[in-house]
């Protein structure tokens, strides 16, 4: 059976739900080999956090060059593995790091690349939603190995437990991939809420919150949701940049997106308009965000959200 590589997706030293999603997609195509790139000494413990999804084997590479040289070093290692083992495809999470690794691997292994796939079929046809979700495109890679990045949270993961065989591989990162050096790293600030790109529900606040996110956060917590923000809110320093949704923030596609006090600029829509259901709370009946909402309330978010929060909590108790 042909082999498909998935690049393990980690938050710190722990595999994310996206890793299991990648494995689920890859299993439609062939035998799934997970790749784990770890600092020296952490390979085994990081690999052990990959414990669900149809994965038969993990290839673990330890090197301190990953943390020291970032994208180029990771892409170098992955290209070496791809060149020696010739999988039919490599699936990688579609975020800044994942896409850049994919791009470099495509160049180095003379392979085609597709980014932001939301689905993939057994014959390696990828589905993308382009032009702000208005058009569905199916495409295929015609030369080399299929390098495909998959948008997190696009389909149901197969969460059955797995205990993959572990193979440790030693690699030497070439000098040309060490030209940029990371001198310090700050991980993103994590609250107790779900990750934006992994959450089933996202509640976002914009300029309409006037800097007070408490109503937005309370509603999010009643739904077990992640909290997002428009650029107006992150620029004003009301919410961390890592929570920005949109063109230059994160792309989310949850089951439910609730936009509160957000007007619906094209750059904001670019990051959320493929959400399955969209709910809007906005004072201005003319706000363009209403054009894409399934349920819109023209009203003050400081009145509507607390009442809705109370309603949700009452139903749950």
């Amino acid at each position: 059976m042909s082999q498909v590589f998935i690049l393990g997706d980690f938050s710190g030293e722990k595999a994310t739900k996206t890793t299991t999603e990648l494995a689920t997609a890859a299993a439609r195509i062939g035998e799934v080999i997970g790749i784990v790139f770890a600092p020296v000494g952490l390979g085994a413990s990081m690999a052990a956090t990959i414990n669900s999804g149809p994965i038969s084997k993990l290839i673990v590479v330890e090197s301190n060059d990953f943390a020291a040289h970032g994208v180029a070093a990771l892409a170098d290692a992955l290209s070496q593995l791809v060149s020696t083992q010739s999988p039919v495809a490599v699936l990688i999470a579609s975020h800044a790091l994942g896409k850049e690794i994919a791009g470099r691997v495509a160049v180095e292994t003379l392979s085609g690349i597709i980014t932001d796939a939301v689905d993939i079929s057994s014959d390696l046809t990828a589905t993308q939603l382009v032009f702000g979700g208005s058009t569905t495109v199916h495409s295929k890679i015609s030369h080399g190995i299929s390098i495909i990045t998959i948008r997190p949270n696009s389909f149901e993961a197969d969460n059955s437990p797995c205990a993959p065989e572990i193979e440790n591989v030693a690699l030497v990162i070439s000098e040309k991939s060490k030209k940029a050096t990371i001198t310090s790293s700050e991980p993103p600030i994590k609250g107790g809420r779900p990750e934006l790109t992994e959450a089933n529900i996202v509640v976002s606040g914009g300029r309409g919150t006037d800097g007070n996110f408490s109503a937005v956060e309370a509603f999010a917590d009643s739904l077990g949701a992640a909290v997002g923000a428009s650029r107006a809110a992150t620029d004003a320093g009301w919410y961390p940049h890592s929570h920005q949704v949109g063109q230059t923030g994160k792309t989310v596609s949850p089951q439910l997106y609730v936009a509160c006090g957000i007007s619906g600029a094209i750059q904001h829509r670019a990051g959320m308009q493929t959400s399955k259901t969209i709910v809007v709370v906005n004072k201005d009946p003319e706000a363009p965000i209403f054009d894409i909402s399934d349920f819109g309330v023209v009203g003050d978010l400081f009145a509507v959200l607390p009442a809705a929060t109370e309603g949700v909590l009452a139903r749950k108790s």
Binding site: S134, S139, I278, D294, G296
Partner: peptide, 18 residues
């Protein structure tokens, strides 16, 4: 390096409740 197999416009979001 890649080929588009097909492209279809998705129906616009149906007007929701307001």
């Amino acid at each position: 390096w890649s080929q588009v197999v097909d492209a279809t416009e998705r129906p616009p979001r149906a007007a929701g409740v307001k």
